[in-house]
């Protein structure tokens, strides 16, 4: 389990340093696969069938369909890279390290008595996803951040309660998938309308 936590954190930190969209998506695949393995792992001890189904869904949706959709979008965005992120890669990594500490603090204070490292890892995955959304300009990277948040939440649930009931889990997966499709459509439309997917140009509506 600890290996998986480290893997998750490693991918999360890696994404803080990436400026190429396709590379970020590839890292996301690795992370999602890690989440799937963790899911299977937690299911091994018990006879809970639904963890295996959830793991399979994670692989299919988060490591398969979502990256596929994102790759398709990215394929149309030829010259788009994260040129000047709002926080530079170094600063972002530093901030991510800080969030890791915050996550440990929070877990210690609010959720004592559980698998400390796993929880903190999941929570920091969630927070780093949020951080990516705040500090990156590219639409695709923001989507990646959003899915990282989802991964973090999923892991958190896994390490606390071995995952939500299956029916809810299914709903959540469905929502995430639709969300990525909707966001993909919007990203594509952004490219058509604004000639860029840099979301900092979206500042016309204010006040």
């Amino acid at each position: 389990m600890n290996v998986l936590t480290v893997l998750l954190l490693f991918t999360a930190f890696l994404i803080t340093r990436v400026s190429n969209l396709r590379l970020a998506i590839q890292i996301l695949i690795v992370q999602s696969l890690g989440v799937a393995v963790a899911c299977v792992w937690s299911g091994l001890g018990s006879e809970l069938m639904h963890t295996y189904i959830a793991a399979m869904l994670t692989v299919v949706i988060k490591a398969g369909m979502i990256p596929y959709a994102l790759f398709r979008v990215a394929a149309r965005l030829r010259n788009e890279t994260e040129n000047k992120p709002i926080l530079s890669p170094n600063q972002t990594s530093l901030a991510a390290a800080l969030l890791l500490a915050v996550a440990y603090g929070l877990v210690d204070q609010a959720l004592p008595g559980l698998g400390r490292d796993a929880l903190a890892g999941a929570l920091s995955g969630f927070l780093i996803g949020l951080l990516i959304m705040i500090t990156r300009r590219q639409a695709v990277l923001q989507i990646v951040g959003l899915i990282m948040m989802e991964n973090g939440i999923y892991l958190l649930g896994l390490s606390m309660t071995r995952g939500l009931p299956l029916i809810i889990e299914l709903g959540v997966f469905f929502d995430v998938m639709v969300a990525v499709i909707v966001l993909g459509i919007l990203t594509f439309r952004l490219k058509l309308s604004f000639m860029t997917t840099d979301t900092t140009v979206l500042q016309k509506l204010k006040g």
Partner: peptide, 27 residues
Amino acid sequence: LEAAWKYVMVCSVGIAMALLGTILLYY
């Protein structure tokens, strides 16, 4: 498009918080 992007982004983040809360409630 700008409005929709902000809508989905901010609301998804918010809703993710709600999911976290729901999981905690389940726990």
